[in-house]
Design a protein around this nucleic acid. Structure first.
Lengths: 171, 171
DNA sequence: GACGATACGGAACGCACGCCCCGGTTGGCA
DNA sequence: TGCCAACCGGGGCGTGCGTTCCGTATCGTC
């Protein structure tokens, strides 16, 4: 790959990281190109589609988050809650976190799987209500993460959800 | 108003009620017109904008819901929870309920006000956590209502939110 | 039954956006 | 330094949708 190509690729990624984070997936691709100081054609030379660019930007962060979910878990409920907290923290600052669930089926599946494991263990321990499914959790989080960009207090929202998830027998 | 005009107005409203309910606000206006058996121009003769049509459809239902919030409230927490349950029930069947909060500033304000009153009374009674604002609640509900159309279990979602809202001192 | 006002339908406009094409330019190797 | 392949920029295409315009049809009155 030529030197200027590599340079432009990085410029595009930088611009995309910033604009996806502040405006979410619906930011026009031309705006990303403009921010990067290149034409739209250049973006498409490096990424076949807008989705692919988005995925390249978010995949790293999501994967890192998910990897941290496999950490040692003496308290399964704490492990699940810590993960949800991490998601919320990320989403309260970067707007693309919530879009990732909607836009990229791969990322959604990864999250579903990771949450499913954490959820199952916590439910087996009896500390999280048993009638919640992984799908419920993914979807609920998506809604909550989106809500954070509408003037709500992220910390309060998270506390509400965490408390609501606890098993009735363990208040 | 001419007889055929009134008839067409009703046909448009009927079609809009059905399609907004099943597909939400993003249903193309041409589809509503087609469903009503009229041209797009006819829709615009009766409603100045797509938003106005949407509001005409949802306003009635939302107002009715809000009116029921002023019912006698011996238990403020129960009053609030009953209202939230009503919202959730409505949204689990009709997709336009959640869009109303986003699309129509008027409806959003009405809801905000109604929820604010219910919330304040419940908080004064000490049965709902004191750090939640009306805005938090509106936004949280919006997210939850939207989540109901993504494969989650509406009843479970609602229970989680209701439990999460309770004051820590009243489990 | 004729006439004017009212309403209708659907073609057309404007706009936004994802995506592609092509003439010109630039980088790296011989 | 010269040449070719790789790359760039941005104008342009196709699409979907909200909205408008206007020739035609219909209603209701005299």
């Amino acid at each position: 790959m030529r030197a200027d190509a590599a340079r432009n690729r990085e410029k595009v990624l930088d611009a995309a990281r910033e604009l996806f984070a502040t405006q979410g997936f619906e930011v026009p691709l031309d705006e990303i190109a403009g921010r990067a100081g290149v034409g739209p054609g250049t973006v498409y030379r490096h990424f076949p589609t807008k989705q692919a660019l988005f995925q390249a930007v978010t995949e790293t962060r999501v994967s890192a988050m998910i990897a941290s979910a496999d950490a040692p878990a003496d308290d399964p409920r704490q492990a699940l809650f810590a993960f949800l907290t991490k998601m919320a923290d990320e989403a309260s600052v970067k707007r693309d976190m919530s879009d990732a669930i909607t836009v990229s089926p791969e990322l959604r599946k990864s999250l579903h799987k990771a949450l499913g494991g954490l959820l199952r263990r916590a439910q087996e321990a009896g500390t999280v209500r048993a009638d919640v499914t992984a799908t419920d959790l993914v979807v609920l989080m998506k809604g909550m993460l989106q809500s954070m960009h509408d003037g709500a207090n992220p910390a309060v929202l998270l506390e509400i959800v965490l408390k609501g998830l606890q098993s009735s027998r363990n208040p």
